[in-house]
Design a protein around this nucleic acid. Structure first.
Length: 682
DNA sequence: GTAGGGTTAG
């Protein structure tokens, strides 16, 4: 009824005084807006007390409409400091910390700030962990004599705690006359964030009173310092848990890799919110439990929670981990259907997802449709193109990003160097490696040296690669040795191969890949005695060659095949397709390359049969049988594709006129018209 | 004043 009366009254002119009293009594957003519209229409708006009242209504936490508050503020000719403080507070309430700081800078041009201004802007700095700006403002606080105001002090304690400068935080805290609970909690939080568990515990014990925040901050701090068991005990003893404490404990368990305890809490907790779901989904993703992450996401949607960007990032990364293009497409279409805008990170993980799932074309499309491209987007597409062997495209984009002034980071350079190595561009590799150091001041990490070693190995410059390894400033890891070993195998350099294998086995005796490559190298050289020595070494250490395993997704189902698999329901059809493939390959003139068969099979025929049953061939046969002509076949493999399968797949792509995309343990191969995108460089 | 998001070499 009140609204009705109001709108009736609004049709007439009111004297300012009456209007003001109406505003004073208006409580809801709707009423405020009606009065706002009326004020604008009748011109009474210009009355300073009316506009102030209107501004404070819009800035009121219950209404909190920043857009309207700002528009009222902008129409006020000479806003007082009080009004500046109100609009500043409204920015903070709306999490617009950057804008709040800009506003504060503007304010400085009109007034010296007061004891209400400072806590607001310091809060903004704390939110952004902007320590430098915070310190400058602290300086101003002291200069203007607000250093002993308790609200200013409390905000400073919080600022320094958030920014990891707990020493400065303690100095301010120590000077406080009245140490309020909020500041105690901030101090506790500060120690926990700095990893000073003992100091945090001491603060916790010394606190004159504790509330839910205190307990939760301590639990979070303990969990973040890796003391999840202590955190669990605190959580169990805590008197009044709220939703935040439950969520904090769940996160603690997830970060510690204890998904079971996290699930138990999730089941037990009285209520859940978005953050609960995000913590579970992100936690499963973090622990590489991708399927469970997706299941959680489905449950979340069933319970009608709307995913946030954080949810989507975790879910999309989980899809990348599963390399399930079908699922990735579903989630992408969910994003489009629901009009969810891609923020920087979601866009980046979407590009990564498509490229890791073998859909590099879609990755490029997503990249193209992003209007304000950030470093993450450029890096993701450059890395994506490089693992697909599309070096030209990757390097073209790299030049473009430089041209428009986007500064590459260390990861971008991994992509760039990787692109060079996958197509054998030695000179470019060196050029970009030096560019990274000299032009961008990026210190090469082991990954960059890894790329350089790889570039040299592929080009057959094994001695040079060995020199790089010996001269680089960090200890080589197993990836480096594996790269050199594989290079030696490819270029039939047994001496360097043995050298690399020795270090590799010393460093990571449990890595089966090393023994396999070493033994293959001996097999190629016909040194069968050494082959059996390697085999014995593996046997003695209880190691077995990982079985090759390939998967193909069809109509939302992932079909897995291991070498010689006969467990698939379509086994009969698959093997008859394999027989057909064998005939067609023979007609095309293919001679099986049995030189790298690790197993002890004396008869050539058996060796050939072993090759024919390699998991990727079973998957290809399944793909040819089950997918439409013209539809690319995408296969994911756990091991490196053997050289025979590589030449066979090239031929098959021509014989059956099919694009076949195979991801092995390090990159993608696009087989088309009898050629592979890796140009046999892999 | 407390809880939730991605990145790299074999």
């Amino acid at each position: 009824m009140q609204t009705l009366t109001l709108s009736n009254m609004l049709h007439q002119h009111f004297p300012d005084a009456l209007h003001f009293s109406l505003l004073k009594s208006s409580k809801t957003h709707q009423e405020t807006q009606q009065l706002h519209a009326f004020s604008l229409k009748t011109g009474v708006f210009s009355h300073p007390s009316l506009s102030s009242r209107l501004l404070s209504l819009y800035a009121d936490p219950n209404i909190n409409n920043l857009r309207y508050a700002r528009s009222v503020f902008d129409r006020i000719q000479h806003p007082s400091l009080v009004l500046w403080n109100i609009i500043l507070k409204c920015y903070i309430q709306n999490q617009q910390s950057h804008e709040a700081i800009s506003l504060f800078v503007l304010l400085l041009g009109h007034f010296p700030p007061d004891e209400f201004t400072f806590p607001c802007v310091i809060k903004a700095c704390a939110k952004l962990t902007a320590l430098k700006e915070g310190k400058q403002i602290h300086g101003l606080v002291l200069k203007l004599g607000f250093g002993l105001d308790k609200f200013v002090q409390a905000s400073l304690v919080n600022l320094y705690s958030k920014c990891g400068e707990i020493g400065s935080g303690y100095t301010v805290f120590d000077q406080m006359d009245e140490k309020d609970l909020v500041s105690w909690n901030s101090l506790l939080d500060g120690y926990a964030r700095c990893g000073e568990v003992k100091a945090a515990m001491k603060v916790f014990d010394e606190m004159p009173e504790k509330d839910c925040f205190s307990w939760t901050v301590l639990i979070d701090g303990l969990a973040k310092c890796g003391e999840v068991e202590t955190a669990r005990k605190i959580f169990e003893n805590m008197p009044n848990r709220n939703l935040v404490s439950w969520n904090t404990m769940i996160n603690g368990f997830m970060k510690a890799g204890d998904t079971n305890s996290a699930c138990k809490l999730f089941d037990q907790m009285p209520t859940r919110n978005l953050i609960t779901w995000n913590s579970m989904i992100g936690g499963f993703k973090l622990n590489l439990r991708f399927l469970e992450a997706l299941e959680m996401f489905e449950r979340m949607l069933e319970e009608e929670f709307r995913p946030t960007h954080a949810t989507l990032v975790s879910v999309i990364s989980a899809v990348s981990g599963l390399a399930s293009l079908g699922t990735g497409r579903l989630i992408h279409s969910y994003i489009v259907k629901n009009g969810i805008e891609l923020d920087g990170v979601v866009g980046t993980v979407l590009i990564e997802m498509y490229s890791k799932c073998g859909g590099i074309d879609s990755a490029v499309t997503v990249f193209r449709t992003i209007s304000h491209k950030k470093l993450g987007h450029w890096t993701a597409i450059i890395v994506g193109l490089s693992i697909h062997g599309m070096a030209d495209h990757a390097l073209k984009l790299f030049l473009e990003m430089r041209r428009i002034g986007v500064k590459p980071n260390a990861i971008t350079f991994v992509g760039v160097l990787n692109a060079c190595s996958h197509v054998g561009l030695i000179n470019d590799g060196y050029k970009y490696f030096n560019m990274m150091i000299n032009e961008y001041g990026i210190k090469p990490a082991i990954e960059h040296y890894g790329c350089l070693v790889d570039i040299l190995c592929r080009a057959g410059c094994l001695e040079e690669a060995k020199d790089i390894i010996e001269e680089m400033p960090m200890r080589p890891n197993k990836v480096i040795w594996m790269t050199l070993l594989s290079g030696a195998r490819n270029h039939r350099n047994t001496k360097i191969g043995e050298y690399a294998a020795q270090y590799l086995i010393e460093l990571a005796p449990e890595t089966t890949g090393g023994y396999v490559v070493l033994s293959n190298m001996y097999a190629v050289a016909g040194e069968w005695e050494k082959v059996s020595k390697v085999r014995e070494m593996m046997k003695k250490r209880g190691l077995r060659k990982d079985p090759g395993c390939s998967s193909i997704e069809h109509k939302g189902v992932v079909h897995n095949f291991i070498v010689g698999d006969k467990s698939h329901p379509q086994t009969k059809e698959i093997y008859s397709k394999l027989a057909e493939m064998r005939e067609k390959l023979k007609l095309a003139g293919h001679v099986p390359d049995t030189s790298q068969v690790l197993l002890y099979i004396e008869e050539e025929e058996e060796k050939e049969a072993e090759l024919e049953n390699h998991s990727e061939r079973l998957a290809i046969a399944f793909g040819l049988n089950n997918t439409e002509a013209g539809c690319p076949i995408r296969i994911m493999k756990n091991l490196r594709v053997c050289s025979d399968c590589h030449s066979v797949t090239k031929l098959l792509s021509k014989i059956y006129s099919r694009e076949i995309i195979v991801r092995d343990n390090s990159r993608f191969h696009h087989f088309k018209d009898g050629l592979c995108s890796c140009k046999d460089f892999w």
